[in-house]
Design a protein around this nucleic acid. Structure first.
Lengths: 145, 145
DNA sequence: ATTAATTCATATACAATCAATAGGAATTAA
DNA sequence: TTAATTCCTATTGATTGTATATGAATTAAT
């Protein structure tokens, strides 16, 4: 399950990618229809995840860091929610051994979940913000949802 | 993320499939290395999900309902954890509209998550308990994890 | 009938996580 | 100096996850 936080993060980034300019969090909140104060915290996390840069003070705001084509959904989802894999022992970025497993090389559940994690990764690590924008029927018009 | 409950459920079913006989929950707990009392509740859920039948009293126990080939991982995961999709609006079995979405037909996030949900379903609805057993190097010997 | 083995039902506990909100400090441009 | 903004820390309330406890109901064997 995606958390609301992650969904909001994606929406915020889509707005930034579509707009292509610096935006204050209040504007993003409005365009993305996301709780303003919650979004502030999310934007901070996105900055730490290197997805955007922020400028403080009057005329401050948030700008996408790099081209939308280079920011992949997988990166965002991992930064917000952690691993893509359904189970830690099947994760590549957040691997953790199971307590109830003696030999994970033969664990049939891990095997199955590795397949799932690879499929999820194929999709999310293959989709960029630009790809998301291109899915939208029209452009520059905030009709993404 | 798979819950522990779901993981335990899968392990219990693998044990039952491998064994091919009626087993009391205590025996399953031991073979699957799962907390015994927690497992009891899980087995009840699995019965309600039509994955096994239970007999009470002395010499009672749980038996897989139908062939291992017919019990798909997707069914088990849904019964334990709910939808496979990362987001309710992309679920087929547990669909729910988003509050912050006016036209989900064009929602780019939903679009992306539909792709994810379909990939997950391809894997989990395509894998049976029998398939899991066949992933194991040897058989009938409780070396599944 | 009694006993032991079992499932089944209900309640409880505790911790963690989620989804936010609050208040204010620090920064910046006008 | 002011207004607009990000940034930081704390708090809240609800929900979920991961169990454990207790005991009732059922069944087979003696």
């Amino acid at each position: 399950m995606l958390s609301m936080k992650c969904k909001y993060a994606l929406k915020a980034l889509v707005v930034l990618a579509a707009e292509g300019t610096k935006l204050p969090s209040s504007a993003i909140a409005q365009k993305a229809r996301v709780p303003a104060k919650f979004l502030e915290a999310i934007l901070t996390d996105l900055r730490k995840a290197d997805a955007l840069t922020s400028e403080r003070g009057a005329h401050g705001g948030h700008t996408l860091k790099g081209e939308p084509k280079k920011i992949m959904l997988g990166h965002v989802v991992r930064a917000m929610d952690g691993m893509l894999a359904p189970i830690p022992c099947a994760s590549t970025f957040y691997y953790k051994k199971c307590d109830d497993c003696t030999d994970e090389k033969i664990c049939v559940i891990r095997h199955a979940m590795l397949e799932v994690r690879n499929k999820i990764s194929e999709v999310l690590d293959g989709l960029s913000l630009e790809d998301l924008l291109n899915m939208s029927p029209k452009k520059k018009q905030q009709l993404f949802w």
